[in-house]
């Protein structure tokens, strides 16, 4: 029979880099990214899935990194805000957030960008209602959301314009 363990060796890819690490099974993915890998762009607000600040991409889909244990990311591919930024895929979204005041304190921003990026990958030109709906799981205590929705919409419009022949 399989013996339950408190420590596990895991291998995973984080922002394109293959890693092997030993983890305590009770360490959540957010803490693993922040403390073990020093990728502090992933923020931790509530630790129970409500605020969305810890949103990262796992095998191409957004997840709450506070609601997974690092051991569960074994053999997976994780993208954090550091990876998304470095690769340039969200440069236009980031610029739009700056231009439209979608960032104030910045605490929610990494999660907002990860979620907004996932939304824009699902199809071009989402309506404001669709943007609000999709970002409903990401809390912002500063902006009042209006500016964030503006930012995402501006980036979507820009992408649609530049993809026109």
């Amino acid at each position: 029979m399989i013996e339950p363990k408190e420590v596990f060796d895991i291998s995973l890819t984080v922002n394109g880099e293959r890693l092997t690490r030993r983890v305590q099974v009770r360490t959540n993915l957010a803490d693993f990214l922040r403390h073990d890998l020093e990728l502090t762009g992933t923020h931790v607000g509530c630790e129970h899935g409500v605020c969305g600040a810890c949103t990262v991409t796992l095998n191409g889909k957004i997840v709450r990194s506070c609601l997974m244990f690092a051991v569960q990311a074994d053999n997976c591919e994780v993208q954090t805000i550091e990876g998304l930024s470095r690769s340039g895929v969200i440069k236009d979204l980031q610029d739009a957030f700056v231009q439209h005041n979608g960032v104030q304190c910045g605490f929610c921003t990494p999660g907002m960008l990860a979620a907004a990026h996932a939304l824009l990958q699902q199809g071009p030109l989402p309506s404001r209602e669709r943007i609000r709906d999709f970002l409903s799981g990401n809390y912002c205590r500063c902006t009042g959301y209006q500016a964030i929705v503006d930012s995402v919409q501006a980036a979507a419009n820009q992408r649609a314009r530049s993809s026109m022949p």
Binding site: M1, I2, E3, P4, R26, F69, V71
Partner: peptide
């Protein structure tokens, strides 16, 4: 807060999962 200490097992089959649940109740 963080999860309390626990041990973790990752079975590949339904039978293995049930065996673990039976053993640890």
């Amino acid at each position: 807060m963080k999860a309390p200490r626990f041990s973790y097992a990752r079975p590949d089959t339904i039978a293995e999962a049930i065996a673990l649940l039976t053993r640890f109740g």
